[in-house]
């Protein structure tokens, strides 16, 4: 009886682990597809690029109260002089029906590399911010935002 119980327990654990793995693999592809889709849109905006992590700061809440009107701020460490300034800031939301949210184009006249606006989020997802500097380098950051009520209609 004891052996039988141990076996069934082992069996249960094994099937449990297999089921968990199946769930994980079922969940992963859409997220990966979304990220690849967002990558494609980023390349369309900036051409072929390699982004380094850092210098860009994304100011957005971890948990969105409402997906329809979420304040988002992007700032970049830059002196904003004619020799060294931020040319563009792109914000992408991987899980939205159309991942590109907004592209901002700055000039040395901006004085400070910071923009704030409000965006819609369809569901819990990763939000990315890219900054293109005047020397052509690309910097980025990303943050996950949890959304309880989606904001893209439907």
């Amino acid at each position: 009886m004891d052996i039988h119980a141990a076996l069934s327990r082992r069996h249960l654990l094994a099937t449990g682990a297999a089921a968990a793995a199946a769930v994980a693999s079922a969940l992963a592809p859409p997220a990966r597809a979304q990220a690849a889709d967002a990558d494609g849109h980023a390349r369309k905006l900036m051409g072929p690029f390699t982004a380094k992590e850092g210098r860009v700061h994304l100011k957005i809440k971890d948990v969105a109260e409402s997906g329809t009107n979420e304040p988002v701020g992007v700032s970049v460490d830059s002196p904003m002089t004619p020799a060294d300034y931020v040319k563009a800031i792109h914000v992408l939301a991987e899980g939205n029906p159309y991942p590109v949210v907004a592209s901002w184009y700055l000039t040395p006249r901006s004085g400070r590399a910071e923009v704030n606006f409000r965006m819609r989020l369809a569901k819990t997802q990763m939000v990315r911010a890219y900054a293109v500097l005047s020397d052509g380098s690309v910097w980025m950051t990303r943050q996950e935002v949890k959304v309880t009520i989606g904001g893209c209609g439907g």
């Binding site: 009107n69 949210v101 907004a102 184009y105 704030n116 606006f117 965006m119 819609r120």
Partner: peptide, 28 residues
């Protein structure tokens, strides 16, 4: 600012209704 570009932006459908924006400019 006096005809010189300070900031411009392309917006897509994920920008909220009644779009609010804030940014900076050097007073010249």
């Amino acid at each position: 600012w006096n005809g010189e570009p300070v900031v411009s932006a392309d917006w897509y459908q994920a920008v909220s209704s009644n779009p609010f924006s804030s940014f900076f400019a050097v007073a010249t």
